[in-house]
Design a protein around this nucleic acid. Structure first.
Length: 883
DNA sequence: GCGGACTGCTTACCT
DNA sequence: ACAGGTAAGCAGTCCGCG
């Protein structure tokens, strides 16, 4: 085959839209060659498996059993294992067996199997209780929607809202993401034993801990040290014909043909399936590309059949928004063309699209997860398009389309379609498969199947960890309303109206330029508090009289000192693993890079979970929601902050600023820092660390708004208008010029020179603005529409006004979209970029000058420069007030 | 009937 | 569908003023 660059790839001229067969009945599905009945992925139940990783669990409604999907790295395929232990779904009741047998709808329930009497430990009551275990034939009998479901019949049930396969995982104590073997139909885990030196190290680090705590450490070390397998996977993307430009085809209607589908797998195979235009059918089309296999189809059904083949073969399919678009579209399109449901290897739910054989990960959903965005990727991306995420994480994004999808030539279509699946795959392969490892480690800690983990939020992750532990220890899983009635609501008052309880403290900044600033902070403050103060739903406001004097600062609540709290131990042990082992190992230069990378992934994963562990306690949606627990954590946080500020001062160090868990110290000596750290360790039992050292810091008079300049000249910009996403580019550019100047300031004697340059920058920006030298896109304000347009009832903000103008002009505006607009002098005051006057005739210069002033005033104030001085007061005054 | 003071809404940020 | 705290900029309302 000759190698041909993509550009020289044989090109068909653009064909008008009607030449595609839209819903031509002739094209309806008539199976020509049947797809093999047994796909590669499904395996014989009797087969022995030496080693495979459990990555998914679900319930088979026909067979009426739970099943697992196991991935074998050796064979690169998925094995199904159906439960053969006669495990059945159940729920619990506090009524006796006899009392239950007198309830006729239950006694006569067709799904009831039997009732057993069991003992459970009730943490809310702190005593053992006798319960009845109501066992049913299938999950729907317990928790179906029907009013005849068992949980609806009985006045009170426990553990009836747990999905069957999750309960199955708890009961079998299955370790998701860990290796198992199957022999003669029996499933057994393969015990992973970490290397001797790792165990020795861990033992010595945790030698002084409590026995139970050590058990948790031992559990985590097995899960976290066990190598993560590399899963063979394939990214998929489809392009759909659209008769109207700019309209995204409806995946539920699937009215238009799928004109291209691209596949890229981890082995480097690239394929694009292309549907031919009507005139080209039966015509030979050149397909010579060096590394891409382009396959042309005359019939859409055959193209879809080929997609299905792929969906049956690969263990893991990646998409970007496949739940809501690609797989949904393929499913409905196949139905429209006459495929039978059982011929489609996709399981379509109202919100998800799963696969019958393999696993489907929708990366859009995973990256949309706020914990992943903020903690795993430090908010590197702020928009959730494939392009934006790719630019932020991979360094390059999509090449923009020159014309609408339906007007592309074959070669442009191939390139475009391929680009999407290429980026999708790369999102899981960059940095040595970081994302896949992250997912795997999260599965292991949370015990969630891969599909659920990548789709659910952090509150479900933590719920699942907690439920798994309750079951392991034979604790009764509490009902949400019972926690609330036992513990009550918050006792503190929030500073912000509408919030439920008081949060963190922020120390008022000392404005100005400060040299030699050391920032210290508590390592994982809230998780540390949860560990050290024994915080858990059962320990805060416990039932014991003797604990009532163990008061929480600033609150009427007390904490148990009889029993070790469950969440305290779980979160505490995870915290310690991160701080004392994984974080140090990730930085250990004596280790090979690949190992350091792995340690870094684990510490990132732990960070994600730990950062969310406090927040969920204060969230109504969390199943173990407990306001006193949440406010206890923040109360101890404020207490630690206050005591540390006092201590620093008594050591003679000036505290310039502090937020939640950090303190900005003005030129402290190493001894002073050591003393403070030592004091914190002894008196607070919390680890205070040096977080960063600034050559100097520019503190504004505002909280959460400052600059920090490191020794090497790089600059932390926090909160300032100049870095906010919605700020117009002309301001951002001028602001960044100022940052550059500040990065070059070595010592206080350079400040004056820098000030002069900054004055020039501001003045220059002002003149350019007044002379209308900035083009429209430099003046655009960018603001997200965060809810449906008709939900803006109380007020109509500017971006909504602009959005409404867009709609009037025939544009589509959706929730989550960023509206780009400029400020104008007409009575509406705004105009969307798309409709704005390129000549800048109606620009509201006064507003833009005010914006310039507020952007720079934040910093200028601290530098002792007056914005008005720069422009000359009279000049500004005459401009603002007229002369 | 007009303008300043005030409150509330919305977004984007910090920890 | 993890929390609260802070700031900016605007929308909308209230109050007092012959």
């Amino acid at each position: 085959m000759t190698i041909q660059p993509l550009e020289r790839f044989t090109d068909m001229k653009f064909k008008p839209i009607k030449t595609y067969n839209l819903n031509d009945k002739n094209e309806s599905y008539k199976p020509i060659k049947r797809i093999e009945k047994k796909p590669f992925l499904e395996t014989d139940q009797s087969e022995n498996i030496a080693k495979a990783y459990v990555i998914s669990a679900n319930y088979d409604g026909k067979k009426r059993v739970a099943y697992l999907k196991l991935y074998s790295t050796k064979r690169k395929k998925i094995y199904f294992w159906y439960d053969n232990t006669n495990h059945l779904p159940y729920c619990l009741s506090d009524l006796s067996k006899t009392a239950l047998e007198n309830i006729n709808p239950l006694k006569n329930h067709p799904g009831l199997t039997r009732i057993e009497t069991v003992k459970k430990y009730d943490l809310l009551k702190d005593k053992e209780v006798t319960m009845s275990k109501i066992i049913a034939k299938d999950p729907l009998s317990i928790g179906g929607r029907s009013s005849r479901a068992i949980r609806e019949i009985l006045p009170k049930t426990w553990e009836a809202n747990i999905r069957y396969y999750n309960g199955y995982i708890y009961d079998k104590q299955l370790l998701m993401g860990m290796p198992y073997k199957v022999k003669a139909g029996k499933l057994n885990n393969i015990d992973y034993v970490p290397p001797e030196d790792v165990l020795r190290n861990i033992q010595s680090i945790f030698k002084d801990e409590h026995e139970n705590f050590k058990k948790y450490i031992a559990h985590w070390i097995k899960l976290l040290q066990c190598p993560v397998p590399d899963i063979q996977r394939l990214a998929l993307d489809i392009e759909v014909f659209s008769p109207k430009e700019d309209r995204i085809p409806d995946p539920n209607l699937a009215n238009n043909p799928i004109i291209a589908t691209s596949f890229i797998d981890t082995e480097g195979n690239k394929r694009v399936l292309v549907l031919k235009n009507k005139e080209d059918i039966n015509k030979e089309v050149e397909t010579g590309l060096s590394d891409v296999k382009v396959e042309y189809y005359d019939k859409e059904v055959e193209l879809i059949e080929e997609i299905f083949k792929v969906l049956r073969i690969y263990p893991l399919i990646l998409t970007f928004n496949g739940d809501d678009f690609d797989l949904r579209y393929i499913y409905h399109r196949a139905e429209n063309l006459g495929f039978q449901k059982n011929e489609i290897p996709i399981i379509l739910g109202s919100r998800f699209a799963l696969l019958k054989y393999g696993i489907h990960i929708d990366l859009y959903r995973f990256f949309f997860n706020r914990s992943i965005q903020n903690y795993a990727f430090s908010r590197k991306y702020t928009e959730f398009s494939l392009n934006a995420i790719a630019i932020a994480l991979l360094g390059s994004g999509k090449i923009p389309l020159k014309s609408p999808i339906s007007k592309l030539t074959y070669s442009e279509l191939v390139k475009y379609c391929l680009m999407d699946s290429e980026l999708t795959l790369k999102l899981t392969t960059f940095s040595d498969n970081l994302v896949m490892k992250l997912i795997f480690i999260l599965m292991r800690i949370t015990k969630l199947p891969m599909e659920d983990l990548t789709r659910q939020g952090v509150s479900n992750w933590i719920k699942n960890i907690m439920y798994f532990e309750h079951r392991r220890l034979n604790y009764l899983i509490p009902r949400s309303e019972d926690i609330l009635s036992a513990k009550g609501n918050a006792a503190s008052t929030a500073l912000i109206k509408g919030k439920k309880y008081k949060g963190a403290a922020v120390v008022n900044p000392t404005p100005g330029v400060h040299f030699n600033v050391t920032v210290v902070d508590f390592a994982s403050l809230y998780p540390s508090i949860i560990k050290v103060r024994n915080i858990s739903y059962e320990t805060v406001l416990c039932t014991h009289h003797e604990c009532r004097n163990n008061k929480i600062p600033d609150l009427p609540h007390w904490i148990c000192h009889v029993r070790k709290g469950l969440s305290s131990q779980i979160i505490g042990s995870l915290r310690d693993m991160r701080v004392k082992w994984y974080k140090t190992k990730a930085k250990d230069q004596s280790l090979p890079e690949s190992l350091r990378n792995f340690y870094n992934v684990v510490q990132l994963t732990l960070k994600v979970l730990l950062n969310a562990s406090y927040g969920v306690m204060g969230s109504e949606n969390f199943s173990l929601y407990c306001p006193p627990v949440a406010e206890a954590v923040t109360a101890y946080g404020r207490d630690a902050m206050k005591k540390t500020v006092d201590m620093a001062q008594s050591l003679g160090v000036k505290v310039l600023y502090g937020d939640t868990d950090s303190l900005f110290l003005k030129s402290p000596t190493p001894e002073q820092i050591n003393d403070l750290i030592k004091w914190s360790n002894e008196k607070l039992q919390m680890e205070l660390e040096i977080e960063k050292e600034y050559r100097y810091s520019v503190l504004t008079k505002l909280k959460k708004n400052y600059l920090g300049i490191y020794q090497d000249g790089t600059v932390d910009i926090k909160g300032l208008i100049g870095k906010k996403r919605h700020t117009p580019k002309f301001l951002k550019d001028a602001f960044m010029k100022m940052i550059k100047i500040l990065g070059d300031v070595q010592s206080s004697k350079d400040i004056e020179k820098a000030k002069k340059s900054i004055r020039n920058i501001v003045h220059d920006c002002y003149s350019k603005l007044m002379n209308r030298e900035y083009t429209l896109d430099y003046l655009t304000v960018n603001i997200t529409i965060s809810k449906p347009l008709n939900k803006y009832i109380k007020t109509t903000p500017q971006h909504v006004k602009a959005a409404k103008l867009l709609i009037k002009a025939g544009y589509d505006v959706k929730q989550g979209q960023i509206i780009r607009f400029i400020k104008t002098i007409d009575d509406i005051g705004v105009k969307p970029l798309q409709l704005a006057d390129r000549e800048l005739k109606d620009i509201d210069l006064k507003k833009y000058v005010e914006h310039l002033k507020s952007t720079f005033d934040q910093v200028l104030d601290a530098l002792g420069i007056s914005f008005n001085d720069i422009l000359g007061i009279s000049k500004l005054d005459s401009f603002l007030w007229g002369s």
